[in-house]
């Protein structure tokens, strides 16, 4: 769906304002796409996401899987001839997508992040076993990848008990309205 001209300017400008990054310098040379290790999981290559915004296709840009698949490894930004901080633009778009309440195309990745933050909120540190269990429950999928979980337990790669901090009040302060 095409959005109106003013709204297009808004998204592009908003990203620029929030992250200080001007992706309009992009040459569409594809260096970022060629180097991205996770391109095959994305519906648009990173530079095509910029193009979507330039074309005023805000909804497509906010709704694409690319912004969720991107792990921020910086392979692309190290290769970019225009020194564009590509993962920061992805970040900005992800936060915007969450704010607008648009349907998230990669709900599993979002659930995973939420479960990580849940344990941090609770213990001040992550607790891998709990993250994995709750994440799997949310997906109603306890069985896939079960062999892996058991292997990790057997090799004691998942501690059973969480490591907790003392001053949990400080963590409450950090997560205040959440």
């Amino acid at each position: 769906m095409k959005m109106k001209r003013e709204e297009q300017q808004t998204l592009s400008e908003e990203i620029k304002e929030n992250s200080g990054i001007n992706f309009n310098a992009c040459l569409h040379c594809q260096s970022c796409a060629n180097g991205c290790p996770f391109l095959e999981g994305m519906d648009f290559p990173p530079n095509a996401v910029f193009r979507l915004i330039q074309l005023g296709m805000d909804e497509e840009a906010l709704n694409c899987s690319t912004i969720w698949i991107c792990v921020g490894c910086n392979t692309c930004s190290s290769a970019c001839p225009m020194a564009i901080d590509i993962p920061s633009v992805m970040d900005g778009l992800r936060q915007k997508a969450l704010k607008t309440g648009i349907k998230i195309p990669e709900p599993d990745i979002l659930s995973f992040h939420e479960e990580v933050l849940n344990t941090v909120k609770k213990y001040g540190r992550t607790h891998k076993l709990e993250i994995m269990m709750r994440y799997k429950l949310r997906r109603m999928d306890l069985l896939s990848d079960m062999g892996m979980g058991l292997k990790m337990l057997k090799k004691r790669k998942l501690d059973l008990m969480p490591s907790k901090i003392q001053d949990i009040k400080a963590i409450d302060k950090i997560f205040k309205d959440k």
Partner: peptide, 11 residues
């Protein structure tokens, strides 16, 4: 405490 890792950074 946890540095927030990619998850806090992402969402």
């Amino acid at each position: 405490n946890c540095c927030g890792s990619s998850s806090a950074h992402s969402i």
